[in-house]
Simulated assay, not measured.
Amino acid sequence: MAKMNMLHAINSALDITMAEHPQACIFGEDVGYFGGVFRATSGLQEKYGKHRVFNTPLTEQGILGFANGLAAFGAPALAEIQFADYIFPAFDQIVNESAKFRYRSGNEFNVGNLTIRTPYGGGIAGGLYHSQSPEAYFAHTPGLKVIVPRNPYQAKGLLRAAIKDDNPVLFFEPKRLYRASIGEVPEEDYTIELGKAEVVQQGTDVTLLAWGAQMEIIEDAAKQASEQGISCEVIDLRSILPWDVEAIAQSVTKTGRLIVSHEAPITNGFGAEIAATIGQECFLHLESPIMRVCGLDTPYPLALEKEYVPDALKVLAAIKQSMDF
């Protein structure tokens, strides 16, 4: 085990992959000698050469077009989109090409070797073009997997599982946690199963559900709630697509209450899908309406970032409202 922040853990996962697969390539804007804008790929070009770790032109649709072709020929394609906000020029390549390769060929060919990494979310005063959380756009697309880690240990294990998966995977990395989150991480290889949520704290009164950087927010809220005699079950969804309906339903059947928190705007955020599904699955067990504590339906602000992002006090208020219903 070694102390790593999330960037080190991601770098370690990529390093293992590059050593494991001679054809694996890392590519994106400034990922070469520069190591990417957040330095996630630092040292890998020196170790594996410019022909395997290289910069691309500033064209996201070109990055994913190339990635689809590389992955279709069986090479692990490790594409980086510099910020999740920049992914939209590549939207067509991802939802109409990457996601449909296997289906349209009747499983004769696929791009299952494709992993798309991208920093997402707020917390760095990035304003409206460097702070968005677009996971819900891609959760609407069959053929993709969408993953979000909450800490360094999760980041390395989930990324390695994503790279080994037989489907194209979008791997959203909470940029606020890159250097802020530090923990014990195995230096050797390991994986964490995709599509499974994790109960990080047992509770009996209310279920709190989030993913990525929002996990520390709901954990803080759960701690404050416990001081007021409210027992919270805290769950990290981890996988947006597919998502673990069974684990969430099992928890809500026990607690009778559910609060979902995410940074993305509340309207049509992934919390809406969770609320609809769990409302159907657990209707007879619910003690109060399912609640969402989310970002606002506005562009992500710069000066008012703290007011926009859900925090522990907002989640705590929702907990009290749910308990008092």
Rank of each mutant, 00 (worst) to 15 (best):
A2R: 12
V146T: 13
A99H: 07
T141R: 11
T207E: 01
L177R: 00
D297Q: 06
L194P: 05
A155I: 01
H51D: 15
Y120A: 14
Q61F: 13
A272C: 12
G112E: 09
R117D: 09
G195Q: 03
G279H: 00
G112T: 08
V252K: 08
E60T: 07
R52G: 05
P134K: 10
A40C: 12
V199P: 00
L209F: 02
N167W: 06
S322K: 03
A71S: 14
F83M: 04
L7S: 13
G157W: 03
E227F: 07
L209H: 09
D205W: 02
G256W: 07
S226T: 07
P289Q: 02
G256V: 00
S261R: 04
V185H: 02
I290Y: 04
L209C: 04
Q228D: 10
L144D: 07
K145W: 13
Y153K: 09
A77E: 01
G65M: 14
R179S: 10
G271H: 09
P265C: 09
G35Q: 03
S261E: 05
L296R: 05
Q280L: 13
W243T: 02
E173H: 03
G127W: 10
A19K: 15
E193H: 04
E108C: 08
E108H: 14
H130A: 15
F172C: 10
G123W: 04
S251T: 03
F38K: 04
H21V: 05
A225K: 04
K50G: 15
